[in-house]
């Protein structure tokens, strides 16, 4: 559980950094739909940044699937456990 929280925190840090927003503005519901800044280019930057940070690699299908913070965390969780 503790590990989970730390992970969440780190993911939120990356999101805040990439989008240049306050961490407090980020929630699980934040999505491509409801956040204008999250366009295809920012999506690329976000994915690249997460790959770098967690030393993981997303499959193209996964990159396509990620459309919200919740989905993003779910996919990362499956990758690192």
């Amino acid at each position: 559980m503790l590990y989970n929280n730390k992970m969440k925190d780190e993911i939120y840090n990356v999101i805040a950094d990439v989008f240049g927003i306050e961490k407090t503005k980020i929630s699980e519901d934040l999505s491509k739909e409801n956040f204008e800044k999250w366009d295809s280019i920012m999506h690329l930057s976000l994915i690249a940044e997460l790959e770098e940070k967690f030393e993981i690699s997303f499959e193209p299908e996964e990159i396509e699937l990620i459309n919200s913070v919740m989905k993003l965390r779910e996919i990362i969780k499956n990758k690192i456990g």
Binding site: S40, L44, A48, S57, P60, I63
Partner: peptide, 8 residues
């Protein structure tokens, strides 16, 4: 991978 999904 990035080239194929986004032409980068």
């Amino acid at each position: 991978k990035y080239y194929l999904i986004s032409q980068s």
